[in-house]
């Protein structure tokens, strides 16, 4: 850092203490505790625990159910990320095109950002309900008997639709602001070179949007992995049974319902490693961005 700085020995430490204290107590302690307990097998009645080494991890690797949940998480994350990015990009491009009403459209398309995922999930519960859901009835006219909470893939479909609905606004905001920061001159130059609007978009505009898109990709993956907990919990009505769940949801079930502290902690650690990798990728991309701008 090349800026003029104050030199005061104790003030910065005083300023940092609150943050460091909270992080130490509520972040590092739990995180360390998770790593530690992933090597132990907890007595279900709370009488101590025994060191089992990597057994919790090998159990995970061999568990067919864990693999199934992992596959579903992958599919779910992909679907949510893809559809919410695609829809948002389309809407942002159109909102950037129109001259009249752009502000109104922006408001209408972004306000859902503020709705809590479980509230969106409750709406999903009502709309997709097996006997009275409005969307269920709509599907019925096409001959699709939609059974939320009973059929695995029907439930998965509802989860993806609700999660996408909830995520489109964030992506829309970022894409629109990305599009609006592209200078007019660039567009006009492109207009001379290329008559086709679609061609112009993919050759000129989209590459300029790529940094935003990469950033959003990471944001969306994180969202699908972690923030959709409320959507899933409400749509399976807090009773997962045979319904599809994600890895984070499984950490929750195994830890709080199954009282399996060791297994749940091992799953937490696996997720930590996953997020670590994602973040490294993100930092790399951000660094590259700073060089360009």
């Amino acid at each position: 850092m090349k800026r003029a700085v104050f030199s005061n020995p104790w003030l910065p430490i005083m300023l940092l203490v609150p943050q460091l204290f909270i992080i130490a107590v509520f972040f590092y302690w739990p995180a360390g505790f998770a790593i530690q307990s992933s090597f132990y097998l907890q007595d279900p009645f709370g009488f101590g625990s025994t060191y089992v080494g990597l057994e919790n991890y090998t159990d995970l690797a061999q568990s067919a159910e864990y693999k199934r949940v992992a596959w579903f998480t992958l599919l779910y994350t992909f679907a949510v990320t893809f559809f919410s990015l695609a829809i948002a990009l389309l809407l942002a491009v159109k909102a950037d095109n129109v001259l009249r009403g752009a502000k109104t459209y922006r408001t209408l398309l972004m306000w859902v950002y503020a709705i809590a995922p479980p509230v969106a999930g409750l709406m999903g519960v009502m709309l997709f309900d097996q006997s009275r859901g409005n969307i269920t009835k709509l599907f019925e006219t096409f001959g699709w008997e939609f059974r939320l909470g009973v059929d695995y893939w029907d439930t998965a479909t509802a989860m993806i639709i609700v999660a996408v609905w909830k995520q489109v606004p964030v992506n829309f905001i970022f894409f629109l602001s990305g599009l609006q920061s592209i200078p007019r001159t660039v567009r006009e130059a492109a207009l001379i070179d290329n008559r086709s609007a679609t061609g112009r978009f993919w050759d000129v505009i989209f590459p300029l949007l790529a940094p935003t898109a990469f950033f959003l990709l990471i944001i969306n993956i994180t969202y699908a992995l972690f923030d959709t907990f409320g959507v899933i919990d409400t749509l399976v009505k807090a009773e997962p049974g045979n319904n599809p769940v994600t890895l984070v949801y499984k950490v929750f079930i195994d830890g709080f319902r199954g009282n399996d502290l060791g297994g749940s902690s091992a799953q937490s650690v696996v997720l930590m490693v996953l997020v670590l990798i994602l973040t490294i990728v993100q930092f790399r991309l951000m660094e590259r961005r700073i060089h360009y701008t």
Partner: peptide, 28 residues
Amino acid sequence: YFRLKFATLAFWVIFTTLLLPLEVRILP
């Protein structure tokens, strides 16, 4: 704004928390 001895360390200690949302370490 300060020249700190442990600036880099403090930076990393703080920014590592960006990595792990509460949901991941929920049970501990």
